[in-house]
Simulated scan of single mutants.
Amino acid sequence: MKKYYPIEKSESEWKEKLDPESYRVLREKGTERPNTGKYYLNKETGIYQCRGCGNEIFHSSAKYDSGCGWPAFTEPVSPDAIDVKMDYSHMMIREEILCAKCGGHLGHRFPDGPKDRGGIRYCINSVSMDFEKK
């Protein structure tokens, strides 16, 4: 059963709104190459937002250097900022992270984060986000 999100667009509307790489990741569940993303090494203070709809998803205070090659966070700005669903693609079992407002693919969640910060790692594609410096 397909989940409906508050922000719905046709595929042609998404293609018009997003650059090709952001479209591939957000709408086609792609991934960017490791160690290449715009926000991978970003250490500025601010809010990360879904590039598809502007939904606030992660605060910079939750970002840490996991060494995984993608921006990593310990928690979203709020539990209702994201959706989590099982992903069985590529012969793996993972938890996919989606924007709760537009359903855009953000990345995946893993149980190998810092133990002192909850033990969860949100591994997120830079091209699925925008950043608002505070």
Rank of each mutant, 00 (worst) to 15 (best):
M1N: 12
K2G: 03
K3R: 14
K3G: 04
Y4T: 12
Y4G: 09
P6W: 11
I7N: 04
I7L: 14
E8G: 06
E8I: 12
K9D: 01
S10E: 15
S10R: 13
E11R: 08
E13N: 10
E13F: 15
E13W: 06
K15E: 14
K15V: 06
E16V: 03
K17T: 14
E21M: 08
Y23A: 02
R24L: 10
L26P: 00
R27K: 07
G30H: 05
E32C: 07
P34R: 09
P34E: 12
N35G: 08
N35M: 12
T36R: 08
T36F: 08
G37F: 03
G37R: 02
Y40H: 13
Y40P: 00
L41A: 15
K43F: 10
K43P: 08
K43E: 10
E44R: 12
T45K: 14
T45I: 15
C50L: 03
R51N: 12
R51T: 01
G52C: 11
G52I: 07
C53K: 01
G54A: 08
G54N: 02
N55L: 01
E56T: 06
H59E: 11
H59F: 03
S61N: 13
A62H: 14
K63W: 06
K63E: 05
Y64T: 13
D65S: 13
D65T: 14
S66H: 01
G67C: 10
G67T: 08
P71D: 07
P71F: 10
A72V: 01
F73R: 02
F73A: 07
F73D: 02
F73V: 09
V77T: 07
V77S: 06
S78V: 08
S78F: 04
D80T: 15
A81V: 07
I82G: 01
I82T: 07
D83T: 07
D83I: 06
K85L: 08
K85P: 01
K85C: 05
D87P: 03
Y88F: 14
S89R: 11
S89Q: 08
M91T: 14
M92C: 12
I93R: 09
R94W: 04
E96G: 02
E96D: 13
C102T: 09
G103I: 05
G104Q: 02
H105L: 02
L106G: 00
G107Q: 00
G107D: 00
H108Y: 10
R109D: 04
R109V: 15
P111R: 12
P111N: 10
P111Q: 10
G113M: 00
P114F: 03
P114S: 04
K115N: 13
D116I: 05
R117L: 15
G118I: 06
G119H: 11
I120F: 11
R121P: 05
R121T: 08
I124K: 00
I124E: 01
N125Q: 09
V127S: 00
M129H: 03
D130A: 13
E132Y: 14
K134W: 08
